[in-house]
Nucleic acid binder design. Structure first.
Lengths: 153, 153
DNA sequence: AATTGACAGTTACGTTTGTAACCATATCTA
DNA sequence: TAGATATGGTTACAAACGTAACTGTCAATT
């Protein structure tokens, strides 16, 4: 037993935050490469597009909550998508602070194409992780999601 | 059945990269807040500290591989930790390109304290996710790690 | 021994990020 | 109805980031 063992029984390789982060980076990066190369989208932009594409009309704040993105990220992504004419804003009638966000026809088209990529990647992931691995990961994530819902803020 | 349903059966909420990333951010951020607030450490710095604390003497390249960090991140973290006198470098005898990195006494002390925080957080996570959730997440992550090892690069 | 290529680590540069301050509007309270 | 407070969204600024180019050293080839 040498000094290292005495010092601590902590192992970074076993530490969940570390493992989760590394895995997320790996998984996300492979997909990010696709939409970045093909469409020049940043991650916040893709997420905003996906949120609006799948949920329809939302406010910027709602997008942020939905995707757990900081509001400045959302703000910048919305601006970028708007410039690209993939998204349009409309004012809320009663509350002029609020803006409703919606995809344009072009935005919807892009969303659908990206959706195809996403599905292809999902299939690839299933092969990569195996059915059991995927299932385990998914239920683990569900546990985290429940914990997040409890730890409301 | 409205337009959204027809448009696509893709659901962002089910998309693994999205879920993984969101979960990782949630889990990692809670812990990052601790070492950031108490020690003013960045994530790369904490990771480098942890790598050296748990594995003893390593080179910068080894730290990078171990923690999957880009070499510029490692370089900057090493510089910061060195300035803080938590880490010292020694030249490799045979190869003058290589530097061995090691924690100083102060660095080791800090590592041990952070290790206590990390263990406390692990325990908290187990409560938060439940034993089953934790187990599922862990084996899901193992699947990802195996996939990463296969997709060598 | 000179040339070439590989590798460890650092640095310069442009981009992305989070924090905090900000503007405008809405709501609550007195 | 005035003042305080909260909220949606943007912006300024500094810190952190990745890419690519760089320095210095080693190994292989000639």
């Amino acid at each position: 037993m040498d000094a290292d063992d005495v010092m601590s029984d902590f192992d970074l390789e076993q530490f969940l935050p570390f493992r989760l982060n590394r895995a997320a980076e790996f998984i996300a990066l492979r997909f990010a490469a696709a939409y970045k190369a093909e469409y020049g989208l940043t991650r916040p932009e893709w997420r905003t597009l996906a949120a609006l594409g799948s949920s329809g009309r939302m406010t910027a704040t709602e997008v942020g909550v939905h995707s757990t993105m900081h509001k400045t990220k959302v703000s910048r992504a919305v601006f970028a998508l708007e410039e690209r004419r993939w998204l349009k804003r409309t004012q809320h009638e009663d509350d002029r602070r609020v803006e409703h966000l919606e995809l344009t026809a072009a935005g919807t088209k892009a969303y659908q194409e990206l959706t195809r990529l996403a599905r292809a990647y999902s299939a690839e992931l299933e092969k990569l992780l195996g059915r059991d691995g995927l299932q385990a990961l998914s239920s683990g994530l569900t546990a985290v999601e429940n914990a997040m819902a409890q730890t409301r803020r």
